[in-house]
Nucleic acid binder design. Structure first.
Length: 471
DNA sequence: TTAAAGTCAATAGA
DNA sequence: TCTATTGACTTTAA
């Protein structure tokens, strides 16, 4: 792969400046950086990928990351996207050669960058690499070269394979994933990807709205009713929570950047209600960023759950419990194989439409997803509510959150601090988002924080451990 | 142990 | 082809 190590000595200092240019990439004089000087020093940290790392070799990427000043992740990704598109460079190439990430990861990263302070050391690495790359005056050129080389290699392979078998020596670009492993017994080892049907997703989202952190029991119920593996449901919740969270991050950033105008009203002052953008219900979930220390933020149970509870008469939780109760009987253990139940679906409980998906292999036959156990239809009042959904959406507003929660972080004190840092980082103030659309999401954030606190409290309580809460 | 964070990699769409 | 999405897996923290 290409290398462009800069003289280590300089790297240290230049790095800081390097890494912090917020603006137009490049321009940094061609000076020291970017000269392909040393290269062998594979460097100490083995873990580090032998990527270009634009210059420098004495320092491992981790070290660079560690000493890197705060970076504007959003700005960086924005610039990277520009440069890539302007030069017709693909994410795959960029990701593999510059970041050491796959295309999908790059796409995700560029589309939904998390704010610097929310990133772990590991998570900051790609951003530092991007910044270094942006500052490399020859960045585009190098990538273009890579592209050419790849193409050449591809052609070569193409030809040779024609006559002969296939000597896949991939391009020097390093695209050859050495999938060592066993060549032949590789068949069935791969299990097909599970693809959740829209209805299933909907059901899960609804469940999430009611309970972002479902109990194992609830998870079991969901899995059973949707005829999914428990692990799939668990994974789904994990993924959804984290994705919702990121969604929020960028929403905030964008809100801030576009509403520079206004406002300084405290987040809590929010009032107008606005419809929430996101697709249908999905995004609602909105969690929030958690406390500075990376705490998770709360689920957003807020609007929906509350609303649901209210509209349906009855607190969501209780209802849920009831539902669980009702569903009891379903074995919460291994359900690797879906026990498809013969029982049909009662009224529309949650329908897990089988047909549409390529579904998992060992999956159960076609029957419809069961409704929980038998008597269920009604029994699971809660589950019904959870799964059927209706309830929730509607009356979202019924409850105006108690406003007391300090935005963004679970602790007021920390909250303000955080707000500040956010502002400086992204140039916006939370307050700014008080505008309509953003409004609701911020409200949700607050609610999320509340929920988060509650969640943690419950957790602590269940453990009977002493926890110090600073609110 | 649990949840979050970070990624991979399959796959859907354009 | 390329990018976006997303279920699953791995690593890291608490």
């Amino acid at each position: 792969a290409p290398e462009s190590p800069m003289s280590s000595s300089e790297s240290v200092k230049s790095l800081t400046e390097l890494v912090q240019q917020p603006c137009p990439a490049i321009e940094t004089s061609k000076d020291g950086k970017s000269q392909e000087s040393s290269e062998p020093p594979a460097s100490e940290s083995q873990s580090t990928t032998p990527l270009p790392l634009s210059g420098h070799s004495a320092l491992s990427i981790q070290e660079l990351v560690a000493m890197s000043p705060e970076l504007d992740t959003y700005g960086i990704t924005k610039r990277v996207k520009e440069v890539l598109t302007d030069n017709n460079l693909g994410q795959r190439l960029f990701g593999e050669t510059i970041l050491g990430l796959t295309q999908g990861s790059v796409s995700d990263l560029l589309a939904r960058p998390k704010p610097w302070h929310k990133l772990s050391l590991k998570g900051r690495e790609p951003f530092v690499r991007m910044q270094l790359w942006l500052n490399d005056p020859n960045n585009v050129e190098k990538l273009m070269d890579m592209k050419r080389m790849e193409k050449k290699a591809y052609m070569k392979r193409r030809h040779s394979s024609v006559s002969d078998s296939q000597s896949c020596e991939s391009s020097s670009a390093g695209i050859d994933y050495s999938q060592g492993a066993s060549p032949q017994p590789q068949h069935q080892l791969k299990k097909p990807r599970v693809v959740l049907a829209p209805e299933e997703k909907e059901a899960l989202k609804r469940a999430y709205q009611q309970k972002p952190y479902p109990s194992p029991k609830t998870i079991e119920e969901l899995a059973t009713q949707l005829n999914l593996k428990t692990s799939t449901v668990i994974n789904w919740f994990h993924n959804y929570r984290s994705r919702i969270r990121r969604e929020l991050f960028i929403e905030e950033i964008q809100a801030g950047s576009q509403s520079q105008a206004g406002s300084s009203d405290s987040p809590s002052a929010r009032s107008s209600r606005a419809a929430h953008s996101s697709e249908g219900d999905s995004c609602d979930g909105v969690d929030t960023e958690g406390p500075p220390d990376g705490k998770p933020s709360g689920p957003e149970a807020d609007e929906f759950s509350n609303a649901a509870a209210k509209s349906q008469g009855g607190p969501a939780e209780p209802a849920l419990e009831a539902g669980e109760e009702a569903l009891r009987g379903v074995r919460p253990s291994e359900r690797a194989e879906p026990e498809s139940l013969e029982d049909t679906d009662d009224e529309g409980r949650l329908r897990a439409p089988r047909q549409s998906s390529p579904r998992r292999p060992g999956d159960a036959p076609e029957t419809l997803p069961n409704s929980a156990t038998e008597g269920d239809a009604s029994t699971s009042a809660a589950s019904t509510s959870v799964l059927t959904g209706e309830s929730s959406y509607k009356s979202k507003e019924s409850s105006e959150k108690s406003s007391g929660v300090p935005s963004t972080s679970s602790t007021p004190a920390a909250g303000s601090q955080k707000a500040n840092s956010l502002q400086s980082l992204f140039g916006f103030s939370e307050a700014a988002s008080s505008r309509n659309t953003r409004d609701s999401s911020l409200r949700k954030k607050k609610a999320a924080n509340l929920n988060n606190i509650i969640h943690r409290l419950e957790k602590a309580a269940s453990r009977e451990e002493a926890v110090e809460w600073e609110f």
